[in-house]
Each structure stands twice: as structure tokens, then as C-alpha cells.
């Protein structure tokens, strides 16, 4: 109300003020961005440039002076069956886990958005898988999937479902399934809490109005809630995809890429080559193969951003 009364008398004299405001926005924006960009430049920018350089040299831990070798490390990787298998594994792992994490996360967020007794405790408790350090929860999964002591197998055998347990981490497809299960378990709460935060910004009045107009809960959810939380969902989805493609810890603890490389991901293979075998340049090249996929994500995000901000 007050704004209206002050705004009314428009005069020509106000035009430069608008220009001034826009000008100020540009300066202010850069001032606000500065701290974040500085930290990123110092601790990612420089090491990343070093890594790019590494990937086109023959640097190993032992070489003091590296030689430029062009794209040899990249073409060399393509000749390795292990690498090709790893790329396939990474796609399967990322694709499957992200879809499940999104589905379960959305469901969980909707559940948690209702009010019930001990809601806060329940919300925090369901975050636990995401809070516990992966390095440690992965060890718990290692114990749960243990060939001899798996409690799942104990249940399977004792309940008579089968007379021998599943070879969780010892058979190609099951090993992949196991790491996928552990990843979904760990990642779902992250989706849930982010989407839950999104759900809470949804205007209840809008939903109530739609309900009055006769929209079913299902329609309200798909037509109103989902479009409103879409920005959050999209960002979470993309960030999770990036995290999952470059996942390392879980596989490193559970299988180290075995059996016979059936669970190697780009992250673990790059680690094996760069750190365990000391071939820094080759490891960097393998890591950088993640980039094309990731760049697609960025472009998708930018396109989305441009569309929504106009």
C-alpha cells in the first residue's frame, strides 16, 4: 500500500535513477560473488589446470620432468577392455541409482511433509544414512554383504527361500546390485530432505484453492506441486548425477572394482591407475573422461536456467 502511494507521481527525473540501480546491480553482483569465486579459483581452479596438463603428459610419480604426449593417454585408455567395461559400469550404476533415489526421495519427502507425532525425530532419523560418513557406512555394508556372515543370507537360508545364500559381492551382477543398493540407501535421504525443503515453499493456499475447484490429490500433486518444486528437483538430480558418476568411496570399500572389474567405476579405476600404479597422467585422463557427460548436464542446466529466468 505504501509503495503505491509513493510510486504514483512519475516524472522524467526518475529515469537516471533506474539506470543507476542497474549499474549498481552489476557492481554489487561482482562484490557478492567475489568471496566464493576466490575460494573456488584457489582450491579448484589451479589444481584443475594442473590436472588438465597432467593428462596430456607422461607424468608418473617417478618422473621428475614430464613430456608432452598429446592425447596418447586418452587413446590408450580406449584400448583397454577394463576401461570400456568401467564406462559401462559407471553408466549402469549412475542411471539405476539416480532413478531410484529420485523416486524414493520424492515419496519420502511427501510422507515427511505431512504432520504426525515425533515428526522432527523421524525426519532426523531418516537422514541418518546420509549423515554417517560413507567411509564407515560402507564398512557396515561390507559386513552386511559378507560372503560368510551376511545377515541377509542367514535370513534367506533360515527362512527356507533358498538353500544357499546370495554371493553378494562375489558375482558380477550381484556385486553391481549390492553397490547400487548401498548407494540408494545412502543417497535417498539427500533427495528427500532437499525435496522436502522444496515442498515447504509450496503455497498451501494454492493447493486449497485447487481442492475447492475439485482437483483430486493426485492432480494437485502433479499439476501444482511438481511444477513448483521442479527447480529444486532438477538441481538435486543434476548434482546427484555428478556425485554418482564420480563416486569412489563406496566401491573402494566394498569391492575395489572386483570381481574381475565388474564393479569398477571411473573414479575407482582412475584411483587404481593414478595412485596404486603411480601413472598420474593416465589416471587424470581416465577421470577426465567423465567430463563429456558432465558437460551435457551443465548445458542442460544453463538452458533450463535461461528459460526460467526470462
Amino acid at each position: 500500500m505504501r509503495a503505491e502511494t509513493r510510486e504514483r507521481p512519475v516524472t522524467a527525473g526518475q529515469l537516471p535513477t533506474i539506470g543507476e540501480v542497474l549499474d549498481r546491480q552489476g557492481v554489487l553482483a561482482y562484490i557478492l560473488l567475489l568471496p566464493g569465486l576466490l575460494i573456488l579459483a584457489a582450491f579448484i581452479g589451479w589444481p584443475f589446470i594442473t590436472s588438465l596438463w597432467l593428462s596430456v603428459t607422461d607424468q608418473s610419480v617417478s618422473t621428475s620432468v614430464a613430456r608432452f604426449v598429446g592425447l596418447e593417454n586418452f587413446t590408450g585408455a580406449l584400448k583397454s577392455q577394463i576401461f570400456l567395461q568401467t564406462v559401462r559400469n559407471t553408466f549402469v550404476y549412475t542411471g539405476v541409482t539416480v532413478v531410484f533415489k529420485l523416486g524414493f526421495g520424492l515419496g519420502l519427502a511427501v510422507l515427511m511433509n505431512q504432520s504426525f507425532r515425533l515428526k522432527n525425530l523421524a525426519r532426523a532419523a531418516l537422514l541418518l544414512p546420509w549423515i554417517v560418513p560413507t567411509a564407515l557406512s560402507a564398512i557396515a555394508w561390507l559386513w552386511l554383504f559378507d560372503a560368510t556372515f551376511s545377515v541377509f543370507n542367514w535370513a534367506i537360508v533360515r527362512s527356507g527361500i533358498a538353500d544357499r545364500g546370495i554371493n553378494w559381492l562375489g558375482e558380477g551382477v550381484w556385486a553391481m546390485t549390492s553397490i547400487i543398493i548401498a548407494n540408494i540407501w545412502r543417497g535417498t535421504p539427500f533427495f528427500a530432505i532437499s525435496i522436502l525443503a522444496g515442498l515447504q515453499t509450496v503455497d498451501r493456499e494454492l493447493l486449497d484453492a485447487a481442492a475447492v475447484d475439485g482437483a483430486s490429490p493426485w492432480q494437485r500433486f502433479w499439476r501444482i506441486t511438481i511444477p513448483l518444486i521442479r527447480p529444486v528437483v532438477l538441481i538435486v538430480l543434476l548434482f546427484s548425477t555428478v556425485q554418482t558418476i564420480s563416486d569412489f568411496q563406496l566401491v573402494y570399500v566394498l569391492t575395489r572394482g572386483g570381481p574381475a572389474n565388474s564393479t569398477h567405476l571411473l573414479g575407482t579405476l582412475a584411483y587404481d591407475v593414478a595412485v596404486r600404479a603411480g601413472q598420474l597422467s593416465q589416471g587424470a585422463a581416465i577421470s577426465l573422461y567423465m567430463f563429456p557427460v558432465l558437460i551435457v548436464c551443465v548445458v542442460a542446466l544453463l538452458v533450463y536456467m535461461r528459460r526460467s529466468s526470462v
Binding site: 579448484i44 555428478v242 569412489f248 582412475a270 587424470a284 577421470s287 551443465v298
Partner: peptide
Amino acid sequence: FVTYLVPQTLLFLP
């Protein structure tokens, strides 16, 4: 966003 794409396994050495 791009800075987020750089995997830690690549970054920790440099």
C-alpha cells in the same frame, strides 16, 4: 557448477 564436476579423486594430488 563446472567446479563441482571436477572429481575429488582427480583433484587431491595437485
